[in-house]
C-alpha cells in the first residue's frame, strides 16, 4: 500500500530522517517503535506532507506522492491523528469531525456510520465544543475526524499518550477494530511494546532517524526491544 524509498527529511537545517526505507502492507497494522526523539513523529509528518523539505520517494499504491502537498495526500486517502490530538477547541464536535470530510473524494460532508458505532458519546454530543471534552474523548474525536475522510491509510501518533489508564484499553480496542472490522491499513507510532505485539502484524524499529529493524511482529524479540527502547 505504502512504500518509502530512501526518504530524507529536514526541519530547516536539521537533518531528521536518514534514508528511511519502509513498506507498509495493505490491511495490516504496522507499529513504529523507538525511544523518544528518534524521528517517529517526524516520519508520520513526512508521510502526511507536513515536513517542509523531503527527499526520496513515497509510493502510495505505486504512485509517488513525495512532491504532493498535504491536502492532496489527504485526498489520496491518508488520514492523520497527530500526537496531542490537535482538535479545534472552539469548534463543536460536529465541526471537528466534519473537518476531516474535506478530504473525501466524493465531496460529501457526512459523519460516517462507523463513527456512531465506535464513538456513541461523540454522536450524542455533537453540539458541544471540542475543548470541553476529556483527553480520552478528544482522542476519540481526533480519530473520528480522520475517519470522516473515508481513508485507506490511518496514521496514528501515540494514540494512548496522556490519556487516563481506564480509557487506554478502550482506545486500543478501537484501533484493533478499525483494522480487523473496517479493514483500514494503520501505521501506528507506539511506545507500548505489549500493545504493539498484541495489535500489530508488522513493526519498524527506529533509532536516530533511521529504520534499524523492520519485519513481522513475531521477529520483535526482547533483545531488540532492549537494545533500542530501554532507557
Amino acid at each position: 500500500m505504502l512504500a518509502l524509498r530512501a526518504v530524507d527529511g529536514f526541519y530547516g537545517r536539521s537533518h531528521i530522517l536518514h534514508g528511511v526505507t519502509l513498506d507498509v502492507p495493505a490491511g495490516a497494522i504496522t507499529a513504529i517503535l523507538g525511544r523518544n526523539g528518534v524521528g517517529k513523529t517526524s516520519l508520520l509528518r513526512a508521510l502526511m506532507g507536513l515536513m517542509l523539505l523531503l527527499e526520496g520517494a513515497i509510493l502510495l499504491d505505486g504512485r509517488d506522492i513525495a512532491a504532493e502537498p498535504a491536502y492532496r495526500r489527504a485526498r489520496a486517502g491518508i488520514a492523520y491523528v497527530p500526537q496531542g490530538r490537535e482538535i479545534i477547541p472552539d469548534f463543536s464536535v460536529r465541526e471537528n469531525i466534519l473537518m476531516g470530510s474535506f478530504a473525501r473524494s466524493d465531496g460529501r460532508r457526512v459523519i460516517p456510520d462507523l463513527v456512531g458505532e465506535l464513538f456513541p458519546y461523540l454522536v450524542q454530543n455533537l453540539e458541544r465544543p471540542g475543548g470541553v471534552l476529556s483527553g480520552g474523548q478528544q482522542q476519540q474525536l481526533a480519530i473520528a475526524r480522520a475517519l470522516a475522510a473515508d481513508p485507506k491509510l490511518l496514521l496514528l501518533d501515540e494514540p494512548t499518550e496522556g490519556i487516563q489508564p481506564s480509557i487506554v484499553e478502550e482506545i486500543e480496542t478501537i484501533i484493533v477494530r478499525l483494522n480487523r472490522e473496517a479493514g483500514l491499513t494503520i501505521l501506528l507510532v507506539e511506545q507500548n511494546v505489549f500493545f504493539a505485539r498484541q495489535a500489530a502484524q508488522h513493526f519498524a524499529m527506529m533509532e536516530k532517524g533511521r529504520v534499524v529493524a523492520a519485519s513481522a511482529i513475531a521477529e520483535l524479540t526482547d533483545a531488540l526491544v532492549h537494545r533500542h527502547m530501554a532507557v
Partner: peptide
C-alpha cells in the same frame, strides 16, 4: 480551520 491550525487543516484535505 486554517486560522486555528493550518497544518491540521491541510492534513484534513483543505487546500
Amino acid at each position: 480551520a486554517i486560522m486555528r491550525n493550518p497544518n491540521m487543516a491541510a492534513a484534513c484535505g483543505i487546500n
